[in-house]
Design a protein around this nucleic acid. Structure first.
Lengths: 188, 188
DNA sequence: ACCTGAACACCGTTCAAGT
DNA sequence: ACCTGAACACCGTTCAAGT
């Protein structure tokens, strides 16, 4: 009769997803510099030698993190928005509520990495195509002039990215008020 | 009589800006992972021990890179745009031409780093305040409804950031055509 | 199939000693 | 004032050997 370990962390074997899991947390917490084989191995309670059974090298782990995140940054959010239905305008505002959380996650690291790694560049392209496709469909359904859909989709998506990356105060206005007005401009 | 070295690289001494110079190039070429003491020391023809005369550690060098870039990302561009004058609309389009170049530079690395370093976060805040201030003034001068200046400035700035970070195809349309239309939307 | 343990190379950091 | 050279610690990577 085999011993059944009490928890995942007490079992002596680790799966690829165990590694991706702790690495994703480390990336979110302390940035890409914190994704280190030895530190993660300590956290998982194994030796770093074991890492190389699951991955070729550190870059392979990073690519795996980004691939795992891909669904999260697209499909999961879109489904959450679509789940409740409502008018295109309502959906757009719900999308905003979901995305405006603190969870910028690996978005910055991902895009920086994509500048030097073709595999990661492809991930970014898929994510952006998917998000833009969804925004195009929302704007078209809202009745936006077909000739302006592309430009306005870029504006909405940029604003979403911008709210993540831009650190600025808006004087007396709250950021939420500013963004509400900006969205209003984009919906005619 | 002292030897006068033929070139900077042949002299035996390096200034702080020499280090910042090669480090900035390495960052632009190969990303933040390429900013390494030993590699840069080799490039400069000195030992890495010499690095620690000029800087406390690697982070200090990165902060110095970002500080040196700060002027470049704000004042220099604004002056280049203002130099030729013209209507606010013309200035905005000139701003676009200047910024749409390939030179995203350390913008992504800077913002990622700012998440974990207060000094760099301050740099990002100063840069964003400065850029937003300039965009506000352009929009106000263009005759934008005062109540909408802030929202539209965020839209223009986000679009600028977005064109750097977003990797998407626009079907039959060129990116330039899409952006032109987006700007038109923002100028009423 | 997955992990250990030891080995090696590379690099960040320190520091006494040189010029 | 600025640099060398040696030393140390930490970590990425490899690999033969274990279970």
């Amino acid at each position: 009769m085999r011993m059944t370990p009490k928890s995942k962390l007490e079992s002596s074997r680790r799966s690829k997803s165990d590694w991706i899991g702790v690495a994703t947390q480390a990336l979110a917490r302390e940035g890409i510099g914190a994704v280190r084989v030895e530190a993660l191995a300590r956290e998982l309670g194994v030796t770093k030698g074991s890492f190389y059974w699951h991955f070729d090298d550190l870059d392979a782990l990073l690519v795996a993190i980004f691939e795992a995140w891909e669904q999260d940054g697209t499909q999961r959010i879109i489904e959450a928005v679509e789940h409740e239905g409502g008018s295109p305008e309502m959906r757009l505002k719900r999308l905003w509520t979901i995305c405006s959380g603190p969870g910028i996650g690996p978005e910055l690291a991902l895009r920086d990495f994509a500048r030097r790694d073709a595999r990661v560049a492809e991930i970014v392209e898929r994510v952006d195509e998917r998000r833009m496709g969804y925004l195009r469909s929302l704007l078209a359904a809202h009745g936006c002039d077909p000739d302006q859909v592309e430009a306005r989709a870029m504006l909405v998506y940029s604003l979403l990215i911008g709210t993540y990356f831009i650190r600025v105060r808006h004087g007396r206005k709250s950021r939420q008020a500013v963004l509400g007005k900006a969205i209003a401009v984009l919906l005619l």
